[in-house]
């Protein structure tokens, strides 16, 4: 197994070398990019407020537990950790709700638990299917999604199965 702690140093050195080779002002480029990243986060915050309010309510009132218990036999069959059920269900619907759910899983089971790692892999490897679909179809004036939503959902499930095997 490759030691993943080398990844970040390698990435930083790689970016530096690319910047020096292209003779750009690395410092300026970093600052501009950092600003962009912070603005993205700022724009995301209200959405995350809404999502965390909703998931906190569902967790407090026991709805989340009931849902997990309901799905638990199916999840066990696919060797998906119970705690990650919320992430799996919310990911195709909303990026911020899924991120809120990932945060919950990490807060409850620790950042290195299988459930937490599985949740992160699922979130990182997929996209808000319905939002992206409507955005792109809207841009092209397409009214009928045809097979695309079904194909994307099946592909999402393939991703989940792959994650269940390799996490």
């Amino acid at each position: 197994m490759i030691d993943s702690s080398y990844l970040m140093p390698c990435l930083v050195v790689f970016a530096l070398l690319c910047g020096l080779r292209a003779r750009i002002d690395v410092y300026d480029a970093f600052v501009r990019g950092a600003k962009e990243g912070l603005l993205t986060l700022l724009e995301m915050t209200p959405y995350l407020c809404a999502a965390l309010t909703a998931t906190a309510l569902l967790r407090q009132t026991g709805v989340m537990d009931a849902l997990t218990n309901l799905l638990s036999p199916l999840l066990a069959h696919l060797s998906i950790p119970d705690a990650a059920a919320g992430v799996v269900l919310l990911r195709p619907l909303s990026g911020s709700a899924a991120l809120a759910a990932v945060r919950d899983v990490i807060a409850q089971t620790g950042a290195d638990s299988r459930a937490a790692r599985f949740s992160c892999v699922i979130s990182g490897a997929s996209e808000t299917i319905f939002f992206t679909g409507s955005l792109y179809m809207g841009a092209a004036g397409i009214r009928k999604a045809g097979y695309t939503i079904a194909a994307a959902m099946i592909a999402y499930m393939a991703g989940i199965l792959a994650a269940a095997i390799c996490v």
Binding site: F30, G33, G37
Partner: peptide, 26 residues
Amino acid sequence: EAVSFCLSMAGAYAFFGGLLGVLRES
């Protein structure tokens, strides 16, 4: 919770944003 979560993530977002900015402009 959402606000404190975003604050705790701000450093990482700035770092990755900066790193990707260098890659893009290169």
